[in-house]
């Protein structure tokens, strides 16, 4: 590579230093360079929300950022929310309410909702519908996702 960028970034609590092509999309960096393939790419134009990650506490679309834009910053991906044996209450609630079918869009919903629930601990159905209206799901019709968020809010309170 003639042109490279030396990227330092903290992902799920681990610091990484990687030499990358500066035009690498953040989504590709996470998936290919860090092998964190839980972040999914569904549209590459910022509409579907599947690639959402938490950047310095806020949900952002990793397909719309170049990796160098997160230099020196802190990221949480779906892998950082919980593990198979120790899931986040929202992940537990998603399972309990059958809020996922194919599961492809799910990481984006989780990363959108985890920060949101912290700020909105007692949401109404209408508020939840609005909160997830930027994430597309083709399997569930969103209903069980709404149920899961209500359930998670109860669990977390």
């Amino acid at each position: 590579m003639e042109n490279t960028f030396e990227l330092s970034v903290t992902v799920n609590g681990t610091s990484y230093q990687k030499v990358i092509d500066p035009r690498t999309l953040l989504s590709d960096f996470l998936r290919n360079d860090l092998e964190l393939t839980g972040t999914h790419v569904g549209c590459e134009h910022g509409v579907c929300g599947a690639c959402t990650i938490i950047l310095n506490g806020d949900p952002v679309r990793s397909c719309l950022l170049f990796a160098p834009q997160v230099h020196g910053q802190e990221i949480i991906t779906v892998e950082g929310l919980g593990t198979v044996d120790d899931m986040h209450p929202l992940q537990e609630a998603f399972r309990e309410a059958h809020a996922l079918q194919c599961g492809f869009c799910t990481p984006g919903f989780l990363t959108t909702l985890v920060p949101w629930l912290e700020e909105n601990p007692n949401p109404t159905e209408e508020e939840i519908r609005e909160a997830v209206s930027g994430n597309l799901c083709r399997c569930t019709g969103y209903q069980h996702i709404i149920d899961a968020v209500k359930l998670a809010a109860e669990k977390m309170n």
């Binding site: 998936r31 290919n32 092998e35 964190l36 393939t37 839980g38 972040t39 999914h40 790419v41 991906t77 779906v78 892998e79 929310l81 919980g82 593990t83 198979v84 899931m87 992940q91 998603f94 399972r95 309990e96 059958h98 996922l100 599961g103 492809f104 799910t106 990481p107 989780l110």
Partner: peptide, 21 residues
Amino acid sequence: VKRVEDPRLLTGGALFVGDVN
């Protein structure tokens, strides 16, 4: 019954074709 496949899907650990490297 709660789904057997969910924990992996929920934690980013399920394999999709795009993840094969």
